[in-house]
Design a protein around this nucleic acid. Structure first.
Lengths: 339, 339
DNA sequence: CTGAAAGCGCTAACAT
DNA sequence: ATGTTAGCGCTTTCAG
């Protein structure tokens, strides 16, 4: 049987309460006892029983992470960074997946909260999160990430998605492209933000582009390749096809490139392409893919830090952090000598 | 406050123990009470408090998954499949990562066991697992996966790695290659198995190849690209360089292909390449990559099923399951018309 | 500064 | 077939 609070207390001739207080940083403890307790805790390598602690009303030392799809590199990297950080604090991570299904997401939220996670980290696939309290989340504090929601007063970490759209589109325009299209997503905040950035960049360059240059596709997350492939085919079939395209993510971009190549056209000479995500294979593709780097590891670390703060004090002010994206230019978009 | 066992009991005028028994499928309960209890449980949508259940000695409804690196698609897909399965049984998954560091792995094992996971699923990065009991795992049952260990009597699910090596190597030989090299890993059971399969295939074809054709590289998991790149450069520098190479994983294969192309040679005409893992981008690379599919989703499901059995009965016999790999042939290895 | 009493929600072992 | 007693390891009041 593992070492218990009681064992330490008996060894030292004090009560369990005293030990408990020391462990949780109580102030009303003499420096002498505190040291004695801590030493013994070290010696016996005592670890609190989190089940008991949780049951008695304390924290469970557990955080819940709910993502739409762990196989997407974005979420895998996020989970890895978060997990690294939590390990340093002896916290455990309960992982759940919504499979991009709001009904599953709701069930999983309830399950995690019911299990007593100290904080919930959520990349929601719902349309609105206004009913988050109704989902029974409170009083469990919550850190949203990747996808933000209007009118929800929760901590949030994500990318400056408008800047993502601007970066990609400006880059394409600067490469001399004049007919830039966008294959984007639907409804989610990243999709909306990237589209907005795209529009801003186009406007700033004094261009007016056909509405048909914007494709807003559902399921762009999972169906990436096919979505990109089909959207690009449609774009190429326009009377005046685009000479560049900014794609919602890298897989979509791969699909789009494939469509361009199969149409007998060249990348980037006929159609320049920029993706988003900057996955590890971007530079080894048939045509090395320019992409927007999302700095996911940093995102995970920030989200984790926020979560830690909320675990200590659930009432801590809900910060909103936006990270700046970076463009990684590769052959798929570089039309000029030396970029 | 959530619904408790006691609430159900009071509503029905029975004792909590009766309700508890019904919930756990006790036999010494009249059919009438059982039904009354179950109905009320439904109506109130009662969910047991796992903290309390665990503390009192029951199962915690929790499984621990410990992997070397969640970012590797293999482990991400495994985790996803497992998580899907567990969701159907209302079990939670605690995720931990060893970062390929045995010391971290050991700490995490202890932490998971201490938290009372009902089963531990482990892809170990240690050299030996003979001291698994000493790690304080027992009586927590354990399912090993991906990497097997001699002399350890635990449930295991993985690939038939020898067959992986044979499949890949035979394929290259059948394509007319006569000087097949292998860029492999070190120490782990998959690395050993694949090398063995490679050797078997070479022998069966009556060939005798230089020892220098086999590169056993450390850190082939994380450092994939560079490992493959450098190993291939070394192979190409041999007096009689190989005309084909079977690489430990896809990233290694990408590195190897890059080395071949930069040397001014062609894939597959000068050097045919086969990888392992069959990741999603294999077909969109500069040269679409032939690869061995590991059927990870199935692997995850089987591991999960084993874990469920062990959660019910920790003494259940420890099965060992080996899945058969499949070759997916693409341009990187197809030298003859129509493969 | 320290401790005693009570209880979190559940289950084991033993009655009845 | 059902209930009683006791306790899992910890934390919260509140009293000393």
């Amino acid at each position: 049987m593992a070492v218990r609070l009681k064992d330490i207390a008996q060894d030292l001739g004090v009560s369990t309460i005293t030990v408990s207080k020391v462990l949780r940083g109580g102030t009303d403890i003499s420096e002498a006892t505190r040291e004695r307790v801590l030493r013994r805790v070290q010696e016996l390598n005592y670890r609190p029983n989190m089940l008991a602690r949780g049951l008695a009303g304390g924290p469970t030392g557990t955080m819940g992470l709910l993502v739409p799809d762990l196989v997407q590199p974005f979420f895998a990297e996020f989970a890895k960074a978060l997990s690294s950080l939590l390990r340093e604090h002896d916290l455990a991570l309960i992982l759940a997946s919504s499979e991009e299904d709001p009904a599953i997401e709701e069930r999983e939220i309830r399950a995690l909260v019911h299990r007593g996670v100290d904080v919930l980290l959520l990349a929601s696939c719902r349309e609105s999160l206004l009913d988050l309290p109704a989902l029974g989340v409170a009083p469990t504090p919550c850190v949203l990430f990747d996808r933000s929601f209007r009118g929800v007063d929760a901590a949030f970490v994500g990318l400056d998605e408008v800047e993502v759209g601007r970066l990609a589109t400006n880059h394409l325009l600067e490469q001399g492209c004049t007919r830039v299209a966008h294959i984007g997503g639907k409804a989610t905040s990243p999709a909306v933000g990237r589209l907005e950035g795209y529009c801003q960049a186009v406007r700033q360059h004094g261009l007016v582009l056909p509405a048909a240059y914007v494709h807003s596709c559902g399921h762009v997350e999972e169906g990436g390749f096919d979505t990109g492939f089909e959207a690009m085919q449609a774009l190429l079939a326009l009377p005046v096809p685009p000479d560049a395209v900014f794609c919602y993510n890298d897989m979509t971009a791969v699909g789009a490139m494939e469509a361009v190549l199969r149409a007998g056209l060249r990348v980037p000479e006929d159609v320049a392409v920029v993706g988003c995500g900057n996955f590890r294979f971007a530079e080894y593709l048939r045509r090395p893919l320019s992409s927007i780097d999302q700095n996911v590891a940093e995102l995970g670390r920030i989200a984790g830090t926020m979560a830690l703060a909320l675990a200590v004090d659930a009432q801590a002010p809900a910060r909103q952090v936006l990270l700046q994206p970076r463009l990684i230019a590769r052959a798929s978009s570089l039309r000029r000598e030396r970029g």
